[in-house]
Nucleic acid binder design. Structure first.
Length: 278
DNA sequence: TCGGCACCTGCCTA
DNA sequence: ATAGGCAGGTGCC
């Protein structure tokens, strides 16, 4: 239920970038919607009023935690971020967000995504404030390389443009990926230029309901090597095959909700290293 | 397959 | 304060 969710822990766990905090309320852009949630009361209001469980309040968190709690390490990760949830984001925004995230950092990702919204997104009024919505795939597919580069995308500009085009013209149907299994979905997503295994895992976990996705980024690889070197052997740098193998071993261990385990561990490790969030 | 390397550029740190 | 290295990877050879 919604009151079990800790908004600070959830927003500040590296899943989303277009959120800001003001006067006890968190505001976030999600596709063509803006979501406001009051801290402490967790009272939600949205721009479009559409019914959409963004915070995954309907997840049976008790069962999920019971499932993933396999050892002392994950147990302490769960304890240190109570109320942390996986979010259910707008798929297209999620795709662009994580293409943008490659070889970058949270602060810069946020700056770049804000620039993209400012340049291409529709302006709306909500809660007495102005917001820029996330642009459509059509808008970004038609953007010029210079316009995209001006947002700070750098060499990722062409990835954003071609991914937007692939999605706009229907070559990739993101919503359809919600109803296929993990492997089918990851095969489809990694066809998109600029999306490798790690970014595909993020998209699957954060927007396409694949709770068994376990993104293995630099931080998670470091984390698994630090705490789980007895259980899994993974190199600093993973080849395609080694990523697949590690992912399989890890999800065999943590189970169907491995993605939640990943999020707790990721959050814990970044907090230990005092890394900044939003 | 695997390993090595280039890559935009804003942010952070020494 | 300011220059230089680095950052939640990926594609290409």
């Amino acid at each position: 239920m919604i009151n079990d969710i800790d908004i600070d822990n959830t927003i500040n766990s590296g899943q989303v970038f277009l959120w800001k905090y003001n006067l006890n309320i968190w505001y976030g852009v999600n596709g063509d919607n803006v979501i406001a949630i009051e801290k402490n009361t967790n009272k939600i209001s949205t721009f479009t009023h559409q019914k959409y469980d963004f915070f995954r309040a309907e997840d049976n968190i008790t069962e999920i935690i019971h499932n993933i709690k396999k050892d002392k390490i994950i147990e302490s990760a769960i304890m240190s971020s109570p109320g942390l949830r996986i979010l259910r984001q707008d798929p297209f925004q999620c795709v662009i967000s994580f293409i943008t995230s490659s070889n970058s950092n949270i602060q810069k990702i946020k700056t770049t995504l804000l620039a993209i919204c400012n340049k291409f997104g529709a302006e709306v009024n909500f809660c007495g404030q102005k917001f820029k919505l996330f642009p459509s795939s059509e808008a970004l597919a038609n953007a010029s390389m210079k316009e995209l580069a001006d947002c700070g995308l750098g060499y990722r500009s062409r990835y954003v443009k071609s991914a937007s085009y692939d999605i706009f013209n229907g070559m990739i149907d993101l919503n359809k990926l919600k109803s296929v299994d993990y492997h089918t979905a990851i095969d489809q997503l990694t066809k998109i230029s600029g999306i490798g295994q790690k970014i595909a895992d993020c998209i699957l976990l954060f927007s396409l309901d694949k709770l068994d996705a376990f993104p293995l980024d630099r931080w998670m690889i470091r984390c698994m090597r630090k705490y789980y070197n007895k259980l899994f052997q993974l190199d600093e740098k993973l080849t395609w095959k080694k990523y697949e193998k590690a992912h399989e071993d890890i999800t065999d261990y943590f189970g169907a909700y491995s993605g939640y385990a990943q999020q707790f561990l990721f959050k814990m490790e970044r907090d230990i290293q005092s890394k900044k969030w939003l």
